[in-house]
Design a protein around this nucleic acid. Structure first.
Lengths: 342, 342
DNA sequence: CGCGACCGTCGAACCGGTTCGATGAATTCG
DNA sequence: CGAATTCATCGAACCGGTTCGACGGTCGCG
């Protein structure tokens, strides 16, 4: 492969002149610039990434640390990842995807060795062991997901508390008095997945304020367990007229459950979900839902991260915690409840 | 951050001695080795990846090039990616995930700049424009998916032709005489997704040999179009007793379609799918299916790639085209057809 | 006792870029 | 017409590792 020395020789100039001609960081005569560019073209010159990283202390690579747990819904992660990689590329960065189970070790490795200019962390736990490492690292970091302590980092997440309130308010306004909320499995909470109880607690709180009954349960992440659970809930709370779903697997399983029970949506049961538009489209879920916007979140995190990476002044700005406000996409799956339950 | 110079000074030796003590590439006295290791520990020394890449011409990073098209089933890709990243890490490599739409440019960039030691290509088209670039690149490459011309590259794929034959044979053995095969959408084929017609043609061929009727149609990738299509097919071919599905979205939509039509599986209709076990579990698909083993394919590709990267002798071995042979996971969704169609 | 072999360590060069200060030629001004 | 200024280019140093050849000290052997 051609080096900048080869280009310089071909153009009949020194290495430094070739470098300046290519970067434009110093004035170079039109004549020489043309010769250098022609030589670079002819030799198919591409700068060596390692050498450039060494000289400039910049790799033009971002780290994306994701963790995949047994009982989570892995396909949903794909959209976050695409949001990150596509936005990064638009801004001139490549993405190192690290899925190592030991997130702390992985983060240490990529930051200490200076493989990346910045890091996006996903699957944030309430008390995430990676955060102290990231705060101490020389590279800036951004989180997709809200931890207990946001200090020293930029944080992006859906406003899950508001999402819980929006769901409850919406059904309250329609006249519902008894609701069921099905969340992610309890394992997710135990691992520190705070978004689960953020939505749940806010929904419970709002239900209490409004004088509604809300049965909040943890779900399952797989069929057929989640289908059985749904049947069980509808048996256990026959007076409930509204169902709130913060659990992709449950949302995907619901259509066959209502079908089997002969329930009409929204006639017999009003339903609101929380998932991405992409997920809704792929499985043609017929429910009104709160859009979780994974691609937007990934994209926002990268934009802010790159700002900090590229500007010393931006690096001194105060850290942000930015919530996407939940938007209810109305698919007509909610209505006023029947006067009497049969 | 500490450099190897800092470590050397702390240990009271030269930089080269420190390097040899850490790498073990030359004999070093026990005493000095201890001092160097202690110094490295104390200073939390981690080699600078860029500097090492420059010196050794090795980055310990693999490129993973994937392309995401509108009408493909994106979530399925996640499992291939995890197969690659996890195996790569086990072998000491990180993974650069590139999802750029312009695959040719992306591949040129990562290989020319020497960001990666090797490349895994996914979503291989019959006549893939990236292949000539990869063949000419200094790094070895591996494909997940079968192109028209495999020369100069290691190729890994499910044996889709055998899969088509296995499906047909299985139902033929049970006594079926008229089958429907629903494939991926036609766009996938037009883009060069050869696996679609590889399965389809082999199935048609085998059906002809056995004297069966096989209605082969291209499907849709989304609801509700795919649900309508399924209804339409069952209306159009009322005598068909077996359904073969090479289309994730169709498989996911089928349960509600059979439910709505009051069809029993396998009593009224025998069904065989082709998807991953993970997909089957997530959506609790009750059908016998041919396991497409995305994680195994990704893993195999990486292992072979790393072999070539790390050994000059391996680099001279002939290239391999390795097929995973289709395994039918029996979920009891096939049976002998009813004597008469009603 | 002296010579060669061997072992452990060091200095210097190299990988391929970027960047700083210096240099020489052309231009401007008094 | 000579001094001051400007402009384009060059040489050298540097980033942080690895690696080769050389060197000095110990040891074994004749």
């Amino acid at each position: 492969m051609a080096t900048i020395g080869d280009v310089a020789r071909e153009a009949g100039v020194s290495r430094s002149t070739a470098s300046y001609a290519l970067s434009g960081k110093r004035p170079i005569s039109e004549e020489v610039r043309r010769r250098v560019l022609a030589a670079a073209e002819a030799l198919a010159y591409t700068p060596n990434a390692g050498a450039r990283a060494l000289a400039t202390a910049q790799t033009k690579v971002l780290g994306l640390l994701a963790q995949f747990h047994e009982d989570e819904f892995a396909p949903a992660m794909m959209q976050y990842i695409l949001g990150v990689t596509n936005t990064a590329r638009d801004l001139g960065y490549d993405t190192l995807l690290v899925t190592e189970a030991d997130g702390v070790r992985a983060l240490r490795r990529v930051t200490d060795s200076r493989m990346v200019d910045g890091v996006v962390l996903m699957n944030i736990a309430e008390d995430d062991a990676r955060l102290p490492i990231l705060r101490a690292a020389p590279q800036p970091g951004a989180l997709v997901g809200l931890p207990g302590d946001c200090s020293g980092l930029d944080v992006f997440d859906l406003d899950f508390e508001e999402a819980g309130r929006v769901m409850v308010d919406h059904l309250h306004r329609l006249g519902h008095r008894e609701l069921i909320l099905i969340s992610q499995p309890e394992h997710v909470v135990e691992r520190g997945g705070a978004y689960v109880w953020r939505l749940r607690d806010a929904a419970l709180e709002r239900a209490r304020t409004l004088g509604l009954t809300l049965h909040a349960v943890y779900g399952e992440s797989r069929q057929p367990a989640v289908g059985r659970l749904l049947h069980g809930l509808l048996d256990a709370y026959p007076a409930a007229t509204g169902l709130l779903i913060n659990n992709e697997a449950a949302a995907a399983a619901l259509p066959s459950v209502t079908y089997e029970r002969g329930l009409r949506v929204p006639g017999d049961l009003s339903v609101i979900g929380r998932y991405s538009a992409e997920f809704a489209a792929t499985f043609s879920l017929p429910y009104s839902f709160i859009e979780s916007a994974p691609d937007r979140l990934g994209s926002m995190a990268v934009r802010q991260l790159v700002r900090r990476v590229e500007s010393t002044s931006a690096r001194k700005e105060p850290f942000v915690v930015r919530f996407i406000s939940p938007e209810l996409a109305d698919r007509g799956s909610t209505a006023s409840p029947r006067p009497h339950t049969p």
